[in-house]
Amino acid sequence: MTVGASERLRRRIGDNLQAYAFLAAGLVCFGLFSWYPLVKGIILSFQQDNFVTPPYWVGLDNYRALFADPLFGTAWLNTLEFTALALLFGYAVPFAVALVVNEFRHAKGFFRVAVYLPVMLPPIVSVLLWKYFYDPGSGLFNAVLSALHLPTSEWTQSPKMAMVSLVLVSTWANMGGATIMYLAGLAGIPSELYEAAELDGASVWQRVRHVTIPQLRFIMLVLLLLQIVATMQVFIEPFQLTGTTNPDTITVMVLIYRYAFTVNNDFGLAAAMSVLLFIVLGAFSAVYLRLTRKAD
């Protein structure tokens, strides 16, 4: 072997070792903080464990206890209701806001920052801010309604308004990210498409329907999946605004918290509920991706 070939081989081995070192570090972090908790949670779902006495194996008893709990069905129905309302508001509003902001010729950067600002706030801060707004006694919303001589509301204490109130908080706090993604997609649409549509006499709605939506289809499909997965795991809003005992707003994640930290103090039962949520979201994601791949 010549000196040049030996040197090239040495460099190649050194480069590969460096690459494998970076890959190994990533795999270790991923395994330690992602796969290990996942496997540990699945094992825990088959155990009785309150972190005080030693855990012991109970098999499927945790899952049987879940299906026998009256709150099990209520939590799933509330979670699905929240997800549906969040899609109605949180999926359409960012798209509409992005269309409006994109039409501005001046101060577009300011409006982008203003729309994204709620995302930069810690979630608990946003929820506590809206908790003050919803206060039935001295809250901002009821003060405005009273000033306009309109009937006030109990907001989060009202069975009819509680879920809608939670969705409004979630939409306001999280729509900035989706809006920025839509704005980035809108910036990539060739202006010639809109010019051709205008020459054909297309209205604003027709241009949105036949030009904007098809061009943003991929972004909209990805955001739809991400939003459904995120809203199915809603926790902070119902936990802070309505507590863990309100049957009108108790969600799957709140019920998991109840099992682990309040009523049952049973981490095995909470883990079983988490595994069911993981299975539901995983199955939905797989079916959704398969359907969208076929459509593409």
Rank of each mutant, 00 (worst) to 15 (best):
L193F: 08
G90L: 00
R112I: 05
L193I: 03
I42E: 02
V211C: 02
W35A: 10
L291A: 14
G201N: 08
V39C: 05
V100Q: 02
F110K: 06
A230V: 10
Y182L: 01
N78H: 05
V169L: 10
I236H: 09
T53F: 04
F133W: 07
W130D: 02
Y134E: 05
M120W: 03
H210C: 03
P151M: 11
G177K: 00
E195H: 02
T231A: 05
T156R: 04
W172D: 04
P247Y: 08
V97F: 01
V97A: 06
K108Y: 12
L148F: 15
E103C: 11
I180Q: 04
H149K: 15
F111C: 08
L269N: 03
N264I: 02
I219N: 14
L44H: 09
D296S: 15
Y194I: 00
V115S: 05
E81M: 15
V254C: 01
S165A: 09
Q227S: 13
L44A: 12
Q215D: 03
A187F: 02
R217P: 10
V113F: 12
V39N: 02
A21M: 11
S6D: 06
D248L: 06
S153F: 08
Q47L: 08
G243C: 05
R10N: 08
Y63I: 03
A286Y: 15
L269R: 13
Q215N: 13
Y132K: 06
Y194V: 00
V229F: 14
L44E: 13
F278H: 05
Q48C: 04
L276Q: 13
H106D: 06
G176M: 01
W155H: 06
N16R: 15
T74D: 09
F218W: 10
S191P: 08
P55Y: 05
A196Q: 06
V287S: 07
L71T: 14
Y91A: 09
L27E: 03
M120P: 04
A92Y: 08
F239Y: 13
G137F: 14
G137Q: 11
F51L: 15
Y182E: 01
F89R: 00
L38P: 04
V211H: 09
A187N: 11
A187I: 03
G90C: 01
R207T: 09
L226T: 13
I124C: 03
V204G: 13
L166S: 07
L77I: 12
V39K: 03
V97Q: 00
I228D: 07
N265E: 15
N50P: 12
L99N: 00
